[in-house]
Design a protein around this nucleic acid. Structure first.
Lengths: 215, 215
DNA sequence: CCTACCGATCGGTAGG
DNA sequence: CCTACCGATCGGTAGG
């Protein structure tokens, strides 16, 4: 259902039987690990990490709770994998948007668009990523928070650069960057992929909102 | 610690011993019910409703978990009281802001300021109010969602009115009102009351952000 | 991948 | 307001 970011390491679990062809009848699917994470993600997003039971995750795949332990180490490890994958991917896209260059206005437009498009296309990852940080045990929680701080800093620094160049005007780099970040995060809570709005259209609109706010 | 909204009905629990004077030594404080809700609110906000145990709430008051049941009916009822009180108060303030009249620009400025100021001053109530909706059982959950829809509609309709009067310019009443709402909601997640920023200053700044976005 | 089961947690009640 | 306790839930393990 959801097209979750698969961390690079994820593929090492996959048997080399890449043939995803005809009848896979009773055999274990090639990417059971990925299927389990997808099911977990959807449940974490809709009812919350704590409320989700291993039995429910198994249900989605037609197996029992204890059977999951052949493919994942624990419930907590699944959350770690989901959240680390999410934050890493988001940061990767943000860096790409910044590296593409252009003037400060163009770069801001791009990182806002990337931010919003990700929060629409991957609303479950994004929603869980922001809501379940405190469900992570240490030291993973701190590691993720560190990535998030970097992500936020990139916004703030770009706003600052624009203000110093007299392209943007704001009474506070910090508040205006928070406002822009938060309106994008909000998208992950209400976006409906079955609706008629394409993520890139929404992203362009929000980038425009952000620019208006700053100019 | 937090100055929670006390629903009108809350006072009916309070003994008429209003004398909040000298030594209350071993006696039960006059507003045990309110104290319990305050402790619960702080825990719900910081570690989540599900993660909070009755024993932890009792700890904050120096009593055991089971003793709470002399003052509250259940953990769920505490959540209901907190969330209903929060949404009712927020809506009350929004209506007052709208009823104060003025042109569409002034009214928008005012409801954004009220929105943000509430989310800063009552960040715990606001945070729990948005995060724990699905922890509510029916029919309370639907009732609260109904109030929230009305709250959101008031934003959207005001944006629409401004656009029709050619005061505001936006490609979507819905998205721009969501963006404004969400940036305010975000405040409840990061606002630090111990910091040097007063809620009304933040509110005025965000009202300005919203107006810029729309004009 | 399954059943049986352990150990721990927790909301709520009984009965002072 | 307390201790003792019940009943249910749940993550994870044993051992096929």
């Amino acid at each position: 259902m959801s097209t979750r970011e698969r961390p690079a390491a994820g593929r090492s679990h996959v048997p080399s039987v890449a043939a995803n062809g005809a009848d896979a009848s009773h055999r274990t699917p090639p990417d059971r690990h990925g299927e389990i994470l997808d099911a977990a993600l959807e449940l974490f997003a809709t009812i919350g990490y704590r409320a989700t039971t291993m039995a429910q995750i198994g249900d989605r795949l037609g197996i029992r709770g204890p059977s999951l332990y052949k493919h994942v180490a624990s419930k907590q490890e699944m959350l770690v994998e989901i959240m680390a994958g999410m934050m890493t991917e988001l940061l990767r896209r943000q860096r790409a948007a910044l590296d593409a260059g252009g003037d400060v206005r163009e770069r801001l437009e791009r990182i806002v668009a990337v931010h919003v498009q990700y929060h629409a296309e991957h609303r479950y990852e994004a929603f869980v990523g922001h809501r379940e940080i405190d469900s992570l045990e240490e030291p993973e929680r701190s590691r993720i928070l560190e990535l998030r701080r970097e992500y936020e800093s990139n916004f703030r620094e770009l706003v600052q650069e624009g203000r110093e160049r007299d392209v943007f005007h704001t009474s506070s780099d910090r508040w205006s960057s928070y406002a822009i970040l938060d309106m994008g995060i909000g998208v992950s809570a209400w976006y409906n992929p079955a609706g008629s709005v394409a993520p890139d259209e929404l992203a362009a609109t929000y980038a425009d909102f952000a620019l208006r706010m700053l100019t």
